[in-house]
Design a protein around this nucleic acid. Structure first.
Lengths: 223, 223
DNA sequence: CTTCTGCGTGAATCGTCATTCACTCATTTC
DNA sequence: GAAATGAGTGAATGACGATTCACGCAGAAG
């Protein structure tokens, strides 16, 4: 009978794979993408460098899974928040506020996953995330435009622009530090307000929407 | 008498320095920052790799000068456009439209200089540019807020957010291709409109401002 | 014309990481 | 328990680029 993996071995292998992924994610969250180095990831996961290659064919694949995992969580959160909203505009607001709040909470990781410099191959994976983000927003924008809740506009341009505004305003190196919880909340509200106005929601209406948005507690972290 | 550089030699040296800078800028414009490699830059400038180091102590310094040169031109253009405008809001609109139009024209270079991934040291230089951009906008926003032409807001957040929105909407990898002159113009107008609305200018008013903005001809390229 | 300074050269060097591989050891099979 | 399988190891390898340097040569000084 050929060699077969015992269940306990299978579990250990799966755990180890998760440990590697987790270690890589932590490295990214702490030091950005450039800190994700095989030797360091391996050390943090408590294994040898070569072992990483028993689980991931290349660093690119590892990073791709990392990005996919983080992106999936974030997109799910956005969709959930939006789908729970009463109308198209509220959904849009919820979507934006959720992204903003969660991104701000796991700031460095969000930046690493969405915008930080890496090599071309990894970049392709990140594009997927950005695209998913943009597409999610795009759909919500289109829905609102169709019902005349927003002025006519090209959602193809608007969606990425909103993503860019939030990234740069909240995450980018120029963004203020957002230390305390209160400050962070304010920043998220300000950014959301700005984004809604950008789409053509009037200032007063936008303020109302922002206030209605129960900001997701930072509990379900993006880490 | 000690060795002295003849005037003709001085000129040649200066020309060569410019040639290196120009070559580096072209490489960045064509292939992004990662294409700025000493060996290639040297080849394009018609010199040997080692020679580059007679003019720039390190690659970082070379890139820094590159960024500074491009940034200076762009900032000047923005300031000129804004200062020629009749009022604070027009100035803001002109500023944004000018940045958008010029960035779109030299798309790849603008992206390379402002947002593309590089190493930490080079990044510091780029921060300066982004900061200058943001500060320029920030001042204009503050001026408009003071005169009650815009709703109260934190210009520290708004300015970078606008830069981010323009970058991501017009330059980023997700942005549509903007082939023809007409399409590009439309994209710039759309982005400017979005930016103005983001700051709290009403949709109608914003459209008027955009229309008034005589978009700078693509003549004074950013290359 | 001779000597001297210093620019230009580009092959060699150095550093940084990802990736590989010959080997050891734990687990499985019989 | 012995043989077979494959997981884990980590030093060695390789690739990629920036940076250096000893040498040849053009132009400057006298």
């Amino acid at each position: 009978m050929p060699y077969r993996r015992t269940e306990s071995v299978v579990r250990r292998l799966a755990e180890r794979e998760q440990a590697i992924l987790a270690a890589a994610t932590e490295m990214a969250a702490e030091g950005g993408m450039s800190a994700v180095q095989i030797a360091d990831v391996a050390k943090r996961a408590g294994i040898a460098a070569g072992t990483v290659y028993r689980y991931f064919p290349s660093k690119t694949d590892l990073v791709a899974e990392l990005v996919a995992a983080v992106a999936g969580r974030e997109l799910d959160a956005m969709k959930a928040a939006a789908d729970a909203a009463p109308g198209p505009l509220s959904a849009l607001a919820a979507c934006i506020a959720t992204f903003a709040a969660r991104a701000l909470h796991g700031r460095r990781l969000a930046w690493a996953v969405i915008a930080e410099p890496v090599d071309a191959e990894v970049d392709a994976m990140r594009l997927d995330y950005r695209q998913s983000l943009a597409i999610e927003l795009e759909g919500r924008i289109r829905a609102a435009v169709e019902r005349k809740l927003l002025p006519d506009q090209d959602a193809r341009v608007a969606a990425p622009a909103i993503v860019g505004a939030l990234m740069e305003g909240l995450l980018g190196p120029l963004a203020p530090s957002h230390e305390g919880e209160a400050v962070a909340r304010e920043a998220v509200q300000g950014a959301t307000l700005l984004a809604l106005r950008a789409l053509g929601v009037g200032d007063a209406r936008a303020r109302g929407l922002v206030m209605q948005c129960v900001l997701p507690p930072s509990s379900s972290s993006s880490l």
